[in-house]
Design a protein around this nucleic acid. Structure first.
Length: 271
DNA sequence: CCGGACGCCTGTCGGC
DNA sequence: TGCCGACAGGCGTCCG
């Protein structure tokens, strides 16, 4: 489910209810996620105060005095704030009971998500250390993208989805941003001019910004921490629109596959 | 180093 | 109706 806009929407929904509160207790109903939830997590978290909630790529980091709780939503994960004592439903694997009567609850049918404890500094953890450019940081520029593309021939869509290059862009927003930039997803990064990199960088930021403003994308069951669905799916230019007219030029949107993932693009205005 | 394929899971949908 | 394969918002790991 969640790419950068959905994770950021989740983060923003959590901040007012979680930051500054202490963790009263932790419930692990099923520890078997992408990696096992650490057995000592409850001991580590009880009594800790959540000082801040940060996002790095698609990872959420809950900063505490003695370390950091890391949550990744994988493909199907969702975080909701529920009333303390609310009955768990299926796939509700993890609860963080907060002081003040609310519980942060992780639901994840496919269990590709993760809940881990990181020592400080969190950036030194193997999962975070190798991550690439953050789209809303100043270092994210056309030049930086071009430098990272240097000497490579990979297709631009797969390049943008590589978290060692850029973080936060998944299958939906890669297709959408490339349509906005008018660049064909199969184009090799070796054949993208500096001018085109400018378009790509701007389109990534623009697309992600609009998606965050729309509260993310809800295809099946994504919802913010407060339970509100996203609306960006109504703004899709290409994703899931195979055979429908391009909103810019009217040509039929095409679908293909790249690296076992579906890709959508306009064969006329993306070159 | 790079690029590509695989596997981890459950749920849903389309075709027969 | 039931069954079966394909596919779904991610990503670490392995292999050539």
């Amino acid at each position: 489910m969640p790419e950068l806009p959905e994770v950021e929407t989740t983060r923003r929904g959590l901040v007012p209810h979680v930051v500054g509160r202490r963790i009263r207790d932790v419930v692990v109903r099923n520890a078997r996620l992408r990696w096992p939830i650490p057995r000592d997590l409850r001991r580590r978290l009880r009594g800790e105060e959540v000082l801040a909630i940060r996002r790095r790529g698609k990872y959420l980091l809950f900063d505490c005095r003695h370390g950091h709780l890391l949550i990744h939503l994988g493909m199907s994960g969702r975080i909701s704030l529920v009333a303390e004592g609310a009955a768990p439903r299926s796939h509700d694997h993890f609860d963080l009971q907060l002081e003040g009567g609310r519980t942060l609850r992780l639901t994840d049918p496919r269990r590709f998500g993760a809940v881990l404890w990181l020592d400080s500094p969190a950036e030194d953890h193997p999962l975070l250390r190798g991550l690439g450019l953050e789209p809303f940081e100043a270092e994210f520029t056309a030049r930086a993208l071009r430098e990272r593309a240097g000497g490579r021939r990979v297709a631009v869509k797969q390049f943008l989805m590589n978290s060692r290059v850029v973080t936060g862009i998944g299958n939906i927003y890669a297709s959408e941003a490339l349509h906005e930039a008018r660049v064909h997803p199969e184009r090799s990064v070796a054949r993208i001019t500096p001018k085109r990199w400018e378009l790509v960088a701007a389109a990534i930021r623009g697309t992600l910004e609009r998606a965050i403003a729309a509260g993310g994308t809800t295809l099946r069951d994504f919802a913010s921490a407060e339970g509100k669905p996203g609306y960006f799916q109504h703004e899709f230019a290409v994703y899931g629109r195979e055979g429908k007219p391009c909103k810019r030029c009217g040509a039929r949107i095409r679908a293909s596959r790249q690296g076992q993932r579906s890709t959508f693009f306009c064969p006329r205005c993306q070159r």
